[in-house]
Amino acid sequence: MVIIESTDEEEYDTSLLVIIVDTNIYSWGNRILQMSNKTESTSSTKLGSSLIGFNTFVEHLMVFINLHLMLNQENQIAVISSQIGEARFLFPEPHQSQSTKSEQKSIQNIILGKLLHLDTTIKETNQESTSSNFSAALSLSLCYINRIKKEVPIIRPRIFVLNISPDASSQYISVMNCIFSAQKQSIPLDTCILSQQDSTFLQQASHLTNGIYLKPQRQENLSQYLISTFLMDTYSRKLLQCPTLKSVDYRATCFCHKRIVDIGFVCSVCLSIFCSYSSSCSTCGTKFSLKIEIPKSRKSLSQPSSQEQPTNNKDKVEY
């Protein structure tokens, strides 16, 4: 694991917090269904089944944002919404600077307004997929952080993701690339999972970047979780205990079908992963001259079984 040393030695907590809010209308719509199903059924509420709707979620988030800006006069914030098919900046708007101009409202008011009026910005198009464009949001945030770091060198950035949608395996490669570049720049990636399932991408992301991964048990107390855990600045993380994961699912997805694989073929030049044999690598174009004996009665690659051969490296490469 390559971690570049950061200059986190000095004691100050000026931070740039980039929040990626998952505003997938299908996921939030599902949430309303789940909540109404729950109120109909007479089962007692388990600890893990308290859910909140979007408006309540926005309230919790605004308290969190307010406190972040209160902690330090020089703290900055950016909010990106990760929607189906695109990712866009809610704050700051592309032509706006970080400070508020004379006649405008406070930062918190602007963000609140944007969040509550999201439905006006989401366009109705022919949606083939129902997954948020998380990789676009991540890339946007990394580019923004890069810009702000040039303007204010001493600021310490971190990314905070609030996720409710399931992982889109088609975005695996781009998300991993973003994660590696965040790792290189020592930008911690914190995650708060609001859905029922864990997200493997975000688990890997938080683990690789030394970020915090949390799945709150009681979502109606979301602001308490947010305030006591996610406001930790980069300096304090070295001294205080943060919630981390004990085990992370590091399985990769194959580049050809975007399915999760345990055992597969790896190109030795560019390290791209394939689930089935082919004579050349689709990423870098290297021809593989080694012929591999593949038993015809092969089970599905995603289930490891004792008959499977271990990972075959296509070693011989033509120069």
Binding site: E11, L71, Q73, Q224, S228, S236, L240
Partner: peptide, 18 residues
């Protein structure tokens, strides 16, 4: 609150809601 050292702020935050 904002003049406290970073660790002090974190402690206050943890105690804020309880």
């Amino acid at each position: 609150l904002r003049s406290l050292p970073p660790i002090g702020k974190q402690f206050i935050l943890k105690l804020l809601m309880i």
